[in-house]
Design a binder for these strands. Structure first.
Lengths: 187, 187
DNA sequence: TTGATTTTTTGATTTTCGTCAAAAGATTTT
DNA sequence: AAAATCTTTTGACGAAAATCAAAAAATCAA
């Protein structure tokens, strides 16, 4: 499923708009470990992951690498704070697998907003999806112990356990890798 | 500052649009403890807090009341998942002080989208502000101990410590009230 | 396929924080 | 102003999870 088909499944698009979006976007195959976005820069592109996997992370005060979220197939990923607000971001985005992605620059997206106001609906939709994902994660972390956090992963994102290094999942859940490993052992 | 002036400071609005928004909105004085939104319902209104304070919360599986965020002066609050997606929400919103708020219904906002596409920009702006606030909080909780979480409050929202019951702040930070009280004592 | 590197597991120990209980302090109500 | 209710603090204790260290397992590269 390409990204226009994906969007179309939520917000029906006119062929005009569908063509506009496709023509402005770029399809790429990129290797594992490729950085979609580096920290300190203003993020220029929004990506749709057709195949593959990305993670969104930052370094905390202790220099520890902390994963904030994952970008699975059929999802959009960008440094959201940076991309929409046009300011540098502390976050990085890296691919965890060889991936196929569509990308679109901010400038092109902005032009499409002007030409076709309904594209604004699309961006609102994407933002709301991100927001909901974050609410979910927030609720999973805020007042839950390590075992409950692990359950969040096994229930909502079981595939990640197969595909992602344990350390990334541990920092995503806000627990240490050792604790996560032990919890996983007894069950 | 009313909400149109507030928006105008980010996204310059034509007088036409400013008047549209003002005419569709309603200014109200509401008392402490008033529920702006009840759980289980589809949230019909988005609120702008001109004066006062609200909190956004839910009940977890153990029935514990957990504060997810606060709505301070000059910010928008609604059950975001519910309002924009038109589905029931597990969250509640209550006023913590006598407040002055502007409200606008989803139906009216939607009509304004149609009439004035630039209003879509406004709603994108609001969403991004919420998103950033959530990212911030996320980073503050994800891998930090109780003392670091407390520092997040003292640095970013010191006024809340004066205005809000400790229990609400504790659940917002994902720690117990006793722990928060002890941390506060020694410093 | 062998060695090098990275990732995961396991163990011992320490620290942090939650839980339960009760007292002290505020605030609201009558 | 006294009583009732709600909020915050304090103490003792135990459970959960972090830290440090090292071994085992898996993956990658030559």
């Amino acid at each position: 499923m390409n990204f226009v088909q994906y969007i179309n499944s939520f917000v029906p698009l006119s062929t005009e708009v569908a063509e506009e979006l496709l023509s402005k976007s770029q399809k790429q195959h990129l290797p594992k470990h490729y950085l979609l976005h580096k920290d300190g820069e203003i993020c220029q592109k929004i990506y749709f992951i057709e195949k593959g996997l990305a993670r969104w992370y930052y370094y905390n005060e202790d220099g520890k690498d902390i994963t904030d979220s994952f970008g699975l197939e059929n999802s959009f990923i960008t440094a959201f704070d940076s991309f929409f607000q046009r300011k540098p971001s502390r976050y990085l985005i890296e691919l965890l697998e060889d991936s196929t992605v569509y990308s679109m620059t901010y400038a092109d997206l902005d032009q499409s907003f002007e030409k076709f106001p309904e594209v604004q609906r699309v961006s609102r939709l994407i933002l709301i999806q991100i927001l909901e994902q974050m609410l979910d994660k927030n609720a999973a972390l805020q007042f839950n112990n390590a075992r409950q956090r692990y359950r969040f992963i096994t229930e909502k994102h079981p595939d990640l356990l197969q595909r992602v290094a344990l350390g990334h999942i541990a920092s995503f859940l806000g627990i240490t890798q050792e604790t996560l490993s032990r919890i996983r052992a007894k069950k």
